[in-house]
Amino acid sequence: MTTEYSGTGDPARSLALSWRTRDKPSRKGADLTVERIEFGLARVLDDIEVLVRQRSAD
């Protein structure tokens, strides 16, 4: 049995995150943006790909 999580949360915030329209960080030092998260994830995935290729070459 799966749990459904739809219908919770703030729709306005979800849309703002989706469209990247958030004006200012919600707290001091919270400069984490969707773009920075995407960039970091891409770097991690690239590193994993390199490790997998190295391991399969051995």
Rank of each mutant, 00 (worst) to 15 (best):
D23K: 14
K24T: 12
P11Y: 00
A42G: 09
E4H: 09
I48F: 15
A12S: 02
L45T: 07
K28V: 08
L15Q: 10
S56W: 15
S18E: 15
L15G: 05
E38G: 06
S26F: 13
A12Q: 14
A42I: 05
G9S: 07
S18Y: 13
V44K: 11
L41C: 11
R20Y: 00
I37G: 03
E49K: 15
V52A: 06
T2L: 15
E49F: 10
P25G: 01
A57V: 04
V52H: 07
D58C: 11
G40F: 05
P25H: 00
T2M: 13
R22W: 04
W19I: 06
R22A: 09
W19G: 09
P11M: 00
D58Y: 07
L41K: 12
E4L: 08
R36A: 09
A57T: 02
D23M: 11
R53E: 13
V44Y: 12
M1P: 12
T2E: 15
K28D: 04
T33L: 01
A30H: 04
T8I: 13
G29E: 01
R55P: 01
S6T: 08
I48C: 13
E4Q: 08
A30M: 02
T2D: 15
V44W: 06
R13V: 02
A30Q: 02
P11I: 00
R55V: 03
